[in-house]
């Protein structure tokens, strides 16, 4: 009963999330409207959109896992992590996701998959070696919360049109440069160039606004997963400490032995690249101190309820 109270406090967050999503939908609708007025053929947008949607919806999880070289692990191979997962999914009431391990020193964990039934939780060896048992459990709770909230689907759909706008940007730019596609009856070559130019500028604008909104949405979703994950494990402070460990200064200290690195030089380049892409990902996450402050607040509330 009291627990519900804490959940309700999350209401403001949900409201802001819906607001952002509505804004996104409006931006996209406006985008389609302008493209129609400009006379950009529907089938042209449709084909690009359909391909992007299919790739994102069905392929993105496999793509992410493959790009990290992550391998699926059975309970026999990873009994400890599977035990943590088993306990948490029972509590959360969701199907058990698959477990993957990526061998990289970059400390990270993420959930992927288009719906709870097809989801995968991926943990890097870098995060496992840095966190205590309790912290690791809290991180897995956070990722399960993402799965439960269907965040991957939401974010895929949200970023879908932004991706389409991005693709159109490239195609239209190219078309306006070569003077438009021939054979469009209504307009002469010169005015179709102008049309493509305007459509290009609109695409740029849509891409920009959509990206900002998507990042905001992503940050709210992170707060939501922090909150849900902390309620699931009952240990907000462990999640706070894990976050500090993996995104603070400590994350920069490597855990791979220097001699291993010297013998296999190839790995060095790969891990350096991954480090950079991770920094990019962090832009989609709220600032560390704010997340920690919220978790500390939640911990206080929980302590008071006891």
């Amino acid at each position: 009963m009291r627990r519900r109270q804490t959940v309700i406090r999350d209401g403001g967050l949900k409201l802001r999330m819906y607001f952002v999503m509505t804004s996104l939908a409006l931006v996209y609708l406006g985008f389609l409207g302008i493209l129609t007025i400009l006379g950009i053929p529907w089938h042209f947008i449709g084909i690009i959109a359909a391909i992007m949607l299919l790739v994102q919806y069905y392929g993105s999880d496999k793509l992410v896992l493959r790009s990290l070289g992550a391998k699926l692990k059975t309970p026999d191979e990873e009994p400890h992590l599977h035990a943590i997962l088993d306990a948490l999914v029972t509590k959360a009431g969701i199907p058990k996701p698959k477990l993957a391990i990526a061998v990289t020193d970059v400390p990270n964990a993420f959930a992927t998959g288009r719906n709870p039934k097809n989801s995968v939780i991926c943990i890097t060896t870098g995060i496992r070696s840095r966190l205590s048992n309790e912290e690791l459990t809290a991180v897995i709770g956070h990722e399960l919360s993402h799965i439960k909230n269907r965040d991957v689907t939401v974010m895929t759909l949200a970023s879908f049109f932004a991706t389409v706008a991005g693709m159109l940007m490239g195609v239209l730019m190219w078309m306006s440069l070569i003077g438009g596609m021939g054979g469009r009856g209504r307009s002469s070559g010169g005015s179709s160039t102008a049309v493509f130019m305007i459509a290009y500028l609109v695409s740029v604008l849509v891409y920009f606004i959509a990206t900002l909104l998507i990042l905001a949405l992503s940050r709210y979703r992170e707060y939501g997963a922090d909150h849900g994950g902390a309620l699931l494990t009952g240990t907000p402070d462990e999640l706070a400490s894990a976050l500090q460990k993996i995104s603070g200064v400590i994350a920069r200290i490597p855990s791979q032995d220097l001699r291993k690195l010297e013998t296999a030089n190839a790995f060095c380049i790969v891990s350096a690249l991954k480090g950079e892409s991770l920094a990019g990902l962090f832009a989609s996450h709220p600032p560390l101190d704010k997340r920690v402050a919220r978790l500390n607040q939640l911990q206080l509330e929980m302590n008071n309820e006891r």
């Binding site: 200064v249 920069r252 200290i253 490597p254 855990s255 791979q256 032995d257 220097l258 001699r259 690195l261």
Partner: peptide
């Protein structure tokens, strides 16, 4: 550069 602090176990 903390990235260069590789352990030597």
């Amino acid at each position: 550069q903390l990235e260069n602090w590789h352990p030597i176990f």
